[in-house]
Write a protein that binds this DNA or RNA. Structure first.
Lengths: 356, 356
DNA sequence: AATCCATATTAGATCGATCTAATATCCAGA
DNA sequence: TCTGGATATTAGATCGATCTAATATGGATT
């Protein structure tokens, strides 16, 4: 009797260092040439039925694993896409990544992912690595502080790049981004409709493109409503709850404090909500707050946060689609896709309180 | 006059389809053989100073890009690691991914990332793809519903696999996981110390290993405190706020409702907090709640959520380190690393309320 | 001048696939 | 019988790197 063998016999390493099964092995086993095996692997109609069967049998029998790298090398193609995300710990960007990966996978691409943690040097490093891996294209969510030089360099790389969520000014690269200005404008108009005229803008990093855009939308709404802009109502701060707390305190300390706040983002709004309560203001009745992003936590604050949804997962899918188009046709001009956000009215806004 | 040209002229494609610059080109330009160029590329001390300089000059001059795939093919190595995550939209797993990627990048590996969205079929597909790409190892956070067959198959793959956060029972694969039972036990003991004796366990999917473990810890604590277990107090439910709402309602409808709840996770706890308020219970005074995971939102609930921290980013780093060890020494036995969590006491627990 | 050793370089095979151009086979039609 | 066309298969070069084993070069030593 033969010695016992598990159901899933690892019969593939007779020698110590099991050599990989290759097309050559398949060819030998099936009694055909390597070329024919290759045709079978790529589902060519040129192969006779019976021959195909024999090869497929060999594949099963020998436990063959296709080597995509070797194939890509010979074909001078690539089925890998680089995905450079600035901060995955932010659920907003995590959603983006999910949309990206989903669309890329569906198209038969595999994602080389890196999280830069907003570190431009690390970003440079990983991009270089992925370039050396022959990524067919790049999805880039640039780290804050990315130098314009990078963009210039990338144009020379001769590989398509799509920016998402953020973009480098002056870049002749494609981009898929939300209409931040419009979103903030819609939010501001909502407050104006409720009677607010002293509206603060809290949080965001000065100089950052995204911040600039959001402030632009805020200003446009005030302007359209005939409200004179007051620079002291714009309070930049770190993009986290702590920043929100600080910014709210600063704005409440003004001679004429605001009756409502547009927050740079939901996480800033979280801090603003906490700080409002701490300052004895009942949100909605005494003070109105609007966030931005509509992250998962937004509907679970107390009261639930009114905010602007930008659908990061959908943006990811669109960005992936745009990149795939560029990969398919390299002469395709870099396009810019700007998605409209929507205002999600929940419970943090009320009419302007009656002056004491 | 010449037609205008951008400052950063892509001078590398004189012909339409610019051929890649290869070691052969470098060799020609530097007047040496391909072998010598290869030695320079790998920083070999065998090369004379002057020769190295000439090759490096050619590299700069021709804009050479190293081809890692070709090198990996020849060397029969791989610098890619597969990272299979079940649900990146969950901040908990996003943090895990960040820790993983960070450690892998630091070690010179690049991450092939896929998000399975808890779909075993998609998981199977991406794992197969990454295998064909020659991933040096796998980090697997198995989708719920993963069949045991997968594990069996992977043992035959002859490539190291480390499971994180979750694991497939019976798998002879490495794993890096939090001590869920201990975490839940600590949480339960906290409630017991506060005088609670009717403690519910809310949320979690029955049959899931993680749920089983957490319930085990819960039971152990009750047992140690001499409290008779009451199966009706264990209410499985979807792992999201909606599940929490449902589960709390169900438990409050019991003849003898609980005075405190251990939630399967923070997101479940969010729903439980909302539902408690809706039921007229003031959390802490009337009803105590503990979450699990310590996600970012946990400190911004009202009151801030007492929970169990498991440090997903650190787990990611450890898992990466474990995998790298297996890659370095394939004979290394699959190890199991179990990390102790810690209880984060915030504001959702109080002494057992005086009976009316 | 011959030998030896250390240093520096290289020709050619190789990794695992694909592609081109050629060849083999068979049957229909002149 | 020969030509032509469709069908099926293949030898050998190739992608871009590395590796092995051999060779070239230049002192130092006898």
């Amino acid at each position: 009797m033969e010695p016992a063998r598990g159901k899933h016999e690892g019969a593939r390493d007779p020698n110590r260092k099991s050599r990989r099964v290759t097309v050559t092995d398949l060819a030998r086993a099936a009694g055909v040439s390597r070329s024919t095996v290759s045709l079978v692997l790529r589902d060519s109609p040129l192969v006779k039925r019976e021959t195909r069967r024999r090869v497929e049998e060999a594949i099963d029998h020998l436990g063959y694993v296709y080597n995509r790298n070797a194939a890509n090398l010979r074909r001078r193609t690539s089925d890998m896409v680089a995905m450079i995300i600035n901060d995955l710990t932010n659920p907003f960007f995590a959603e983006l990544a999910v949309g990206l990966e989903e669309a890329l996978e569906a198209a038969g691409f595999v994602s080389l992912m890196a999280n830069t943690g907003e570190d431009p040097e690390r970003q440079r490093r990983v991009m270089e690595t992925m370039r050396e891996h022959g990524a067919a294209g790049f999805i880039l969510c640039p780290a804050t502080g990315t130098e314009a030089r990078l963009v210039a360099a990338m144009s020379d790389w001769n590989v398509p790049v799509i920016q998402v969520m953020r973009w480098l000014p002056g870049a002749r690269l494609g981009a898929v981004v939300p209409d931040y200005a419009l979103g903030m404008r819609m939010a501001a108009e909502h407050l104006v409709t409720l009677g607010h005229r002293r509206i603060a803008f809290l949080g965001g990093i000065e100089g950052n493109v995204v911040t600039t855009e959001r402030i632009r939308g805020y200003r446009a709404a005030l302007d359209a409503a005939g409200i004179a802009p007051d620079p002291s109502l714009i309070v930049p701060a770190a993009v986290n709850p702590g920043g929100g707390i600080e910014a709210l305190r600063a704005s409440l300390a003004l001679q004429r404090p605001p009756t409502a706040a547009l927050c740079f983002s939901d996480v800033v709004a979280f801090g603003v909500l906490d700080a409002s309560a701490a300052a004895g203001l009942k949100v909605r009745r005494d003070f109105s707050v609007i966030g931005f992003d509509d992250i998962a936590g937004a509907r679970h604050t107390l009261p639930p946060l009114t905010t602007v949804a930008v659908y990061p997962q959908e943006l990811g899918r669109r960005a992936a689609a745009a990149l795939l188009r560029c990969i398919a046709d390299p002469n395709d001009p870099p396009e810019e896709e700007i998605l409209a956000p929507s205002l999600i009215v929940r419970g943090t806004c009320g009419p302007v309180p009656i002056e004491a």
